[in-house]
Nucleic acid binder design. Structure first.
Lengths: 335, 335
DNA sequence: ATAAAATATGAAAACGTTTTTATAAACATC
DNA sequence: GATGTTTATAAAAACGTTTTCATATTTTAT
């Protein structure tokens, strides 16, 4: 093997082709200034040596990378694949590459964003706290959040309107004729969980309906937590609600399973509705009615806005409304 | 706002602190050579300005990035989340960061790997063809493949032994007392699909059993393709097999659903076994017996080997054996 | 044949770091 | 108080690019 493991640089190509490095650079970036023969000879040498530009050198010079970063704090679970995929496609359409940074370490994340590892960042990562967000905001680095609301000169948010989602759930269930409701909470600190609850209850109040605390159960956005809460509720012997709104799909599924295992029929005795439209809602039995948050669309819009900010536009708040996807877990109440 | 959007560099910190840039660098990388007061003053300024080193500059100088790259051609589907997560954790344990490159474009992928965007690459990406793989192999860039077998000085493979998996499936079903078998193929060009088939049939042959072509169905590694093939088979009215081995879990699930919808009980009339142990096998009903390929383990071993190659070790082939995970879709044949 | 214009290439600076080496200042030794 | 030693900081080179500007060569016009 001729190459002793030292990496081929533009210098090697220049020496081998008998020209200067600037000439090589011109040949490769087809700045049309070279004699065709020279250019062809250089390209031939570059090909033979398998030369590929060092991106650290190039990006340093350029002050840009052509890469957008998606910063995730988790990747397991039904949500992330679809979201990443839509973001990937949107990046490609905009002439950018995508790199996904999977990390729970806020320091690393900040180092990558502020250290010009990417030209812009899409952030869905709870590890980043409010102080770091503040730094980012003041630094003028193009950033789009899809898990929180934060708008600044170069910061945008593309969020699902959870309050509206909660309202939609309430209206949908009311129209089916239900009167007595249960709510399964999400994570306590989660913004969306709170908004969904608020929207749901506000809309019920308009219809003159309130929900007592016994009918507000812990769910934690998790299947098991919801299952356990509902099971405990059933054991208590309290009267069944007509319908349950869970703060997300996983907890809706957990609740539905708990009813089934407790001998309560969904949807004949109790209706269940979730939120997010993860794939699993279609696969379980009964399939779960939910509110689709269109996260593919969210991804596309996030990339779009990010690119616009890179090109000078300023930040804004973009909210997306969900839509009810009726499935087997809900039906009109027989009165 | 004081910052006019120009990015803060080490020069700004140096000027503001009234020292040279080398002194700033020493302060930040705590080379212990500075007067404590000077160091503290510099760090204070750096903090105040929110200075973060430009990674392109740093990586260029260092000739390394501290980043390992995972190159995926797809991210949707049950497999990737779990794999990525295990790889992330293994990277962290080894002091590396992880970046996931989601791309179908072989040119971009090569540019990133050879352009020193990462210190090493884990590749699970069909977009990379044999010619590119050859370049990588000759270039001495540390690379681990988890979807194909390729060993070189700095190239390793960590693969599930699919032949052995096929054998295990056969032995398991034979021990349950089954006599008549069906096989559902994977993607035609897929190496593993072929090996699983070969191992399965070789082991059956040892028991004196052959499978006629009518009982080798198209599956394409997909739920729907398998469903359609099995449905077509049922419509043909041919006698049922005792057991079906599908080249992966998705097609096993598709097959199982086709039997159910065709009025054939799994496992009472037909057994079904898949391969991979994706999460869905546990969630469908009946749950699907499968061969667990331990891809979390595969991820950990891949990272481990990659790091070792970065540190001088040479490439090797590492094969992992699967293990049968019995679930509801298989049972002993009542004779 | 000479001046002017066009063409082809190369030298050098710059991007932001880190690191090696040099210099200046402070301190200790006799 | 001159000399040697330690301590603290700075200057400069290097990493691999791209790009601006200068120079050398060729062509065209007179």
């Amino acid at each position: 093997m001729s190459n002793e493991n030292r990496k081929i640089t533009i210098k090697d190509v220049a020496r081998e082709a008998g020209v200067s490095i600037s000439t090589v650079s011109n040949a490769l970036n087809n700045v049309n200034v070279l004699h065709p023969d020279t250019k062809e000879r250089i390209l031939e040498v570059a090909r033979r040596l398998n030369y590929t530009p060092n991106l650290n050198g190039r990006n340093l010079k350029a002050g840009a990378t052509g890469v957008l970063g998606l910063f995730l704090g988790a990747i397991r679970g039904p949500y992330y694949g679809e979201l990443s995929d839509s973001i990937y496609n949107a990046c490609k359409d905009n002439g950018y590459e995508l790199e996904i940074f999977l990390s729970y370490d806020a320091r690393h994340i900040m180092a990558n964003i502020m250290g010009h590892r990417v030209d812009g960042a899409i952030i869905l990562n709870g590890a980043i706290g409010s102080d770091q967000v503040e730094v980012l905001k003041n630094q003028g680095i193009p950033t789009v959040y899809i898990d929180r609301i934060l708008v600044g000169d170069k910061s945008s948010s593309v969020v699902f309107d959870s309050y509206n989602g909660g309202q939609k759930a309430a209206r949908f269930l009311l129209e089916l004729g239900h009167k007595k409701f249960m709510f399964i909470e999400g994570e306590k600190t989660n913004y969306d969980a709170g908004e969904r609850k608020k929207g749901f209850f506000d809309e019920l109040k308009k219809a003159g309906i309130t929900v007592s605390d016994d009918y507000i159960l812990r769910g934690e956005f998790e299947r098991k937590a919801a299952y356990d809460s509902v099971t405990e509720f059933l054991d208590s012997g309290k009267p069944l609600p007509d319908a349950v709104f869970a703060a997300n799909d996983l907890s809706a599924i957990g609740a539905s399973e708990a009813f089934r295992d407790g001998g309560v029929s969904v949807p004949d005795q109790v209706n269940v509705i979730g939120c997010d439209d993860i794939e699993l809602t279609r696969l379980v039995s009964p399939s779960i009615t939910t509110i689709r948050t269109f996260f593919e669309k969210q991804g596309v819009i996030a990339v779009d806005k990010l690119v616009k900010m890179i090109n000078g536009e300023s930040g804004e708040l973009i909210t997306l409304n969900g839509r009810i996807i009726p499935r087997e877990s809900t039906k009109a109440k027989d009165s």
